[in-house]
Design a protein around this nucleic acid. Structure first.
Length: 490
RNA sequence: GGCCCCAUCGUCUAGCCAGGCCUAGGACACCAGGUUUUCAUCCUGGCGACAGGGGUUCAAAUCCCCUUGGGGUCACCA
């Protein structure tokens, strides 16, 4: 049994943090936290072309935003610093040299052009695409001469004969025939080592004991296992998480929905809901509980319980979960969390909302059980902020209002009755009772008044209690909107 | 196409490893009804799956094999 568990998450700052990457981070983190291990964050920035510092900062923020923390990492340091792969390159080169000397690697002078031709030939013959090892048997003298002449070369790993097996904590034992593993490039012609090489160097140097990552890395594993052998180093335990799938059942891509963690944050999903939903992709607490905390997750999570099959990302369930968290949270927290969304939508400034805190809290309380995300909240209360004259009526709202033949007459007489009632402000409770009595006194059905009224006031077909709405709108705007409604619904 | 992985309701999954307790449980979605001034919430009910075929066994969703289907991967990206 491994004593000191050390896991890592190693994102590449070549783009935004993928939602699947967020789940990988979450599972790694939970595994470490659940058994007193260490969680290491390492930045895989060996692709100088596409890696950016902005991406890195965003990834770190995203992870922290989810509530994850790391014991060692680029911003917190640690005993195995540095935590940027590009800063470890001297060490990588040193290790590559070791493998070269031990015969585990060899120089390959084949040009990209030749490789291109080779691939075409292989494709034509319908054979497996792989390097043909032409440079593997080069005489030492020839290699020396070509190096001396300044001929560019890459370092390839010399894959031995045999089979490569490893234990996968999610899938069981996996075996690859080594003939399926090509002599892959360890070090590029520009001297920069490649992913499969550095990842193992760093995992060894950092004492990583468990490697949990997405299933797309499963086929890389034999290359890496061979590297552990070449370095005469103990193999870590592996665990390949099932892929997160789009509705087309293929690896989640932008084609079928948002793929970045940030996309969902921007769409106003509560962070607890994001975490909770991610946990449910490939794992279940007990088969009956869908809603649980990060703490419960840490307590119960085990890599062995992760399912093997891919998980389709079901946005409907995600939305439901988000709404569940919003409904069970407090009005205050919802007000705070939704405020930036209201501001971003251009409805009001943060200062304005803070100045009207009580009012905003009342509004939020009114829509709390009707929204699933912060963005939806902003959408639903937008009508409160627009000019009375510019209020637009939803199709459904207008249709519902116009269903009632006597709408204009009813609205008129109601307006006359209402005017003195709210002359000194709106008191929802007594007003509601009085209005219901008014409806009864006039021998009307409730909807005959309320549907046109709701349309005039909000432009929406549904929503919170109308008398609360009047209070949020204030007397003047309430009266004005009814006047406008009488004209517009005629 | 080669190799690798996977296979329970439309979706997420429990059950499988240690075969009987499974006439397969929960959740989302959907449908119907109730509550409500509307919408939403909430409550009640309904629909709905062990991919197929062989074995092994007294007994298989659970173990084995095959087929079929789906996915991943085949870079001097990570």
């Amino acid at each position: 049994m491994v004593q000191n568990i050390r896991v890592r998450f190693a994102p590449s700052p070549t783009g935004k943090l993928h939602i699947g990457g967020a789940r990988t981070a979450l599972f790694n983190w939970a595994y470490a936290r659940g058994r007193g291990g260490k969680f290491v964050l390492r930045i895989e920035d060996t692709d100088p072309e596409r890696s950016t510092f902005e991406n890195e900062v965003a990834i770190l923020q995203g992870l922290r935003g989810l509530g994850l923390d790391w014991d060692e990492g680029p911003d917190v340091g640690g005993p195995h610093a540095p935590y940027h792969q590009k800063d470890r390159i001297a060490r990588h080169k040193e290790l590559a040299q070791v493998l070269l000397e031990k015969g585990w690697a060899y120089r390959c002078f084949c040009t990209r052009e030749r490789l291109e031709v080779l691939n075409q030939e292989l494709t034509a013959k319908k054979e497996r695409l792989a390097y043909d090892r032409r440079c593997r048997g080069l005489a030492a003298s020839e290699v020396e001469a070509r190096v001396a002449q300044g001929e560019p070369f890459v370092l390839r790993f010399a894959v031995p004969d045999g089979k490569t097996a490893f234990k996968d904590l999610v899938r069981g034992d996996v075996v690859f025939g080594n003939e399926e593993v090509e002599d892959w490039v360890m070090v590029r012609s520009d001297g920069n080592p490649t992913y499969n090489f550095v990842v193992v160097c760093d995992d060894i140097d950092m004492g990583i004991t468990h490697v949990f990552r997405g299933e797309e890395h499963l086929v890389n594993t034999p290359k890496q296992v061979l590297l552990y052998k070449a370095f005469d180093s103990a193999q870590p335990e592996f665990g390949h998480l099932p892929l997160m799938l789009g509705t087309d059942k293929k690896k989640l891509s932008k084609r079928t929905g948002d793929t970045a963690l940030q996309d969902y944050i921007d769409r106003g999903f509560p962070r607890e809901a994001i975490i909770n939903f991610l946990c449910l992709q490939g794992w279940a607490l007990d088969g009956a509980t869908d809603i649980f905390s990060l703490e419960q997750f840490v307590e119960k999570f085990d890599i062995k319980d992760v399912s093997k099959a891919g998980a389709v990302f079901d946005i409907d369930k995600f939305m439901w979960l988000a709404g569940e968290y919003i409904r069970t949270g407090t009005v205050e927290s919802l007000a705070d969390a939704s405020l930036p969304f209201v501001v971003r939508k251009g409805l009001a400034t943060a200062d304005e909302l803070k100045a009207r805190r009580e009012w905003y809290l009342a509004v939020v309380a009114g829509v709390k059980e009707r929204v699933r995300t912060y963005a939806e909240l902003a959408d639903q209360i937008a009508y409160l902020f627009v000019d009375d004259e510019k209020l637009t009526y939803d199709e459904a709202a207008e249709k519902g209002a116009k269903k009632h033949e006597r709408r204009v007459e009813i609205l008129r007489t109601f307006l006359d009755w209402l005017r003195p009632q709210i002359a000194h402000g709106v008191q929802p409770e007594p007003l509601r009772n009085a209005a219901k009595q008014w409806v009864a006194d006039n021998n009307l059905e409730m909807p005959a008044l309320f549907q046109p009224l709701r349309c005039a006031l909000t432009g929406q077909a549904g929503g919170p209690d109308l008398f609360d709405t009047m209070a949020w709108l204030s007397s003047a705007r309430t009266l004005r909107r009814i006047e406008l409604g009488i004209e517009r619904l005629a």
